[in-house]
Write a protein that binds this DNA or RNA. Structure first.
Lengths: 121, 121
DNA sequence: TATATATATTGATGATTATCGATAACATAG
DNA sequence: CTATGTTATCGATAATCATCAATATATATA
């Protein structure tokens, strides 16, 4: 008598497992890439990036505050994360801080994301 | 005497703020998109996706377990998140569960990410 | 110097997430 | 029916994250 499991086994070789199961992405690479996606994994950060990218020049924090629904310390917090990720930079002029996207960093982020998502296809 | 702030003001109009500061991405859209990025924001999920996408057929959980460094309940947990996001699906055959990527969902995820990142340029 | 304003930082709180041992649920083999 | 193997779920714990009031810092103005 032939069980379904046996049929499965024959179709796939031994046991349940057949294919190439090692990731081509190392744990280290996966870590780096996931950290990239993490930066994008918050609605406020996406909106801040949106506004910043749309303004070739610089945007001051009070404008950024007006663009999102969270309070000033939270905006400052998210800007810090974006800065630490290298995606945005800022200059101070007098009391004000003007933020702008780092186009190179953004481009390389985009490439990394693209490369991974393309490879999945 | 002309202070730096005054010069800035003249250059920018009133106060510090000049540009278009409203996001073109609504809070709602930003929420949806950030949830997409969240799914990708973990190294184990990236590696699971990598293995799954590389195997046109189905991959059983024991293979997926072998592909990453976390224990079985954790693998199961991440697979659930991927399932809930619609990116992967699974079929049970006997004792075994075979997972596979939902190519359509993956493609639309890729498009959403691309569209956003492209718009930032 | 005192005051006002913009931004950053601190510190506390609550929410979410990752992890894994233990166990349940289920199918199959003997 | 019992034993075994596979996967999912539960429950506890630890870690990380988001938020904001309060405060610090720095600059400019009066």
């Amino acid at each position: 008598m032939t069980s379904r499991a046996e049929r499965e086994e024959r179709e796939r070789g031994s046991r349940c497992c057949g294919g190439e199961s090692r990731p081509t992405v190392s744990a280290h690479e996966a870590g780096a890439l996931s950290r990239t996606f993490e930066v994008l994994a918050h609605p406020v950060r996406l909106q801040l990036l949106d506004v910043l990218a749309r303004n070739e020049g610089r945007v001051c924090v009070c404008d950024l505050e007006a663009a999102v629904t969270v309070k000033q310390p939270t905006v400052s917090h998210h800007l810090k994360l974006l800065r630490e990720a290298g995606i945005v930079e800022c200059e101070r002029h007098g009391v004000w801080a003007y933020y702008y996207v780092n186009r190179d960093a953004l481009e390389s982020l985009r490439k990394d994301a693209d490369r991974f998502l393309d490879a999945l296809r």
